[in-house]
Each structure stands twice: as C-alpha cells, then as structure tokens.
Simulated scan of single mutants.
Amino acid sequence: MHREVLNAGIVGTGACVPDRILTNVELEQIIDTSSEWIFSRTGIQERRITGPEQATSDLATVAAGRALTDAGINPEEVDLVIVATSTPDMLMPATACIVQDRLGIKKQAGAFDLAAGCTGFVHALTVGSQFIAAGSCRTVLVIGAETLSKMLNWEDRSTCVLFGDGAGAVVLRPVPKDSGILAFKLYSDGAGGPHLLIPAGGSRYPATRETLDSKLHYLQMNGREVFKFAVRVIEESAEEVLAAAGLNKTDIDFFIPHQANIRIIEPAARKLGIPMEKVLVNVNRYGNTSTASIPLALDEAVHEGRIKSGDYIVMVGFGAGLTWGSVVIKW
C-alpha cells in the first residue's frame, strides 16, 4: 500500500545564551593575546560563558521552551526530542531526557542525544524530519546546545578564544509538499577525527590522574587542518544540496553556515557567489557555539523579521568527526 511521504518544516524557533559576556579585552588579561589579534583572525569580539551552576540542559530547556511557545504548541504534543551536543550534562542519561522531563513532555515521547560535532544540528534536523516523513511523529523538537567553555584549556590561546556557550531549538511539523526541508546531504571522514577531539572521558581513556595531569579532557584542535577542511566542504556541500533540491545558487535568499570563523565564512560565500547581506553571521557576538550556532543565527533572523514565507535557506555545518552536512529549506 502506497503511503504519502510528508514534508517536515520549521514552525517555531527559540534560543538561549548565558548572561555572562566574555570580551576579547578580558581575555587579554588571562592569556598571551590581544583583542585585535583575535578579531583579525576569527571575527570574534565576544562570547557567552555559562556559570559553574549551569549545564547544557539548562540552556537547551529554555531554548526549547521558547521554540514551543513560538510555534504555539504545548509540550504534551511533542512526540520526539533530539538534542545535538558534544557537551552533554553527563554520559548518561541523555540530555534530551532531562529536557523532556523539565518541559513536561509526555512519557510516550522519544528522547535521545545526537553527537556529530559542530554538524550536529544539521544531522538532528535531518533525522527529525525523517520521523515526520515516515509518519512516525507529528511534532519533533530539535535542539542544538553546548557548554564548550567547560571543555577548554584556558591556557591554550589557539582554542579558548574561539568557543562560546548557547542553545538554539526548532519545532518540526508536517508542512505542504512544496515547503519545509527540500533536500539534505550528510558526510563523514573519520580519518580526520584526530584534528578535532576531546581525547579523554570515554571508554578509550577513562578519567585517571594521568589523563587529568595530561589535560586530555580539554578540547584539542589542529587549526590549520580544520580550516582547510571547512573552506573546502562548505562550498561542495552547499552546491550538492542545491542540486538535490533542483535549485541554483541564485535561488538562495539566506545562507546560514556554521559560525566557526569569519575567515571561513567570507571565502565560502565568495566562492558560492552569495553576497554577504544574504549570509547570516553572529560569530562576532557569540563565537563558535558548535551545534547551537546555526539555530541561534536562524532564531535571530526569524525574530528580526528578515526571513519571510517562501524564502530559500541553505544551512551548512562542519565539525568534529570529521563531519559535514547541508540542508535546503523553503520557509
């Protein structure tokens, strides 16, 4: 028996960032760097940092609640919660289960975390859309949330100046056939995993005095290799997902790349022929918030009234794994 495949679309957005702002000028006081050096190489001027009492689930819960309110949907209507994160509250239970409980979402709803580095939100959005396409769920809550500041070596200027904390969320529901998520592409290259990782804390290197003394619980990055990888895959991934959707570069109304570095975003936009006024950028105010960066930028643009019905939006993520991926949405 033939069953119609449903399109999934975003019907609500929400975001949450910590109150604490850490500026480049403040970083000058704790590491060997300068505000000008950071800004010229990254485009970052400040980032948000969680307090010692805040965890990833705290940001995720607020962002998700705001997305549900924006969509006009009660928590009891949610069928599935997906939290994309590299910084869960703990290894178990899933952060998504903590969010489900705090929001009062029904026990009949599924909840799980998804780990795909900074590409996590694109992966989670794709996975959530497939539950709707299959007819298994009607309402899916997708969240990208991170507290990477807790995983940084604040003596390492090559990493600690880059990252910030935050959360963004969207609500997915079935939408008309010619709208919503039109196409997606997901990729991986595990051979590049050593370029961006947190070595310890899992089953390979459980926490010991040696792993702590060696600072293996902090994020490590080969910045040069990650930069080259990112510049290459943004263009390729965007072009391939546009082709899958039957669209051209000139059809793009808004481009939302992962907010890693303005020196990655601007060259990618030039190669794609997308003017910067169509590129959503907030890396200057939030730094690299990993899985939260794309939904944060989306939420801002939606609530500023920039995104209109019928707009074509391309999202591209890239990060640890190595992973990368892209999505085309008709708003």
Rank of each mutant, 00 (worst) to 15 (best):
H2N: 14
L6S: 10
C16E: 05
P18L: 06
T42F: 02
T42R: 03
E46H: 06
E46F: 05
A55Q: 11
T61M: 10
T61W: 09
R66N: 10
A67D: 02
A67T: 05
T69Y: 13
D70Q: 08
G72A: 11
G72D: 11
I73Y: 11
V83T: 11
S86R: 03
T87H: 04
D89F: 05
L91D: 12
V99H: 04
R102P: 00
K107R: 14
V122P: 09
A133W: 08
G135Q: 09
G135H: 03
C137G: 09
T147I: 05
T159A: 02
L162G: 08
A167P: 01
V170C: 02
V171D: 04
L172Q: 00
L182M: 11
F184T: 03
F184H: 12
L186H: 06
I198M: 04
P199D: 10
G201Q: 03
G201D: 02
G202N: 09
R204Q: 13
P206Q: 03
P206K: 08
T208Q: 12
L216D: 08
Q220D: 01
Q220A: 08
F227V: 07
F227G: 04
E235L: 14
E236P: 12
A238I: 11
E239K: 15
A243H: 14
A244V: 10
A245V: 03
L247Q: 09
D253P: 07
I256W: 03
Q259A: 01
A268D: 00
A269R: 02
A269Y: 03
K271F: 12
N288W: 06
E300S: 15
L322Y: 09
W331E: 12
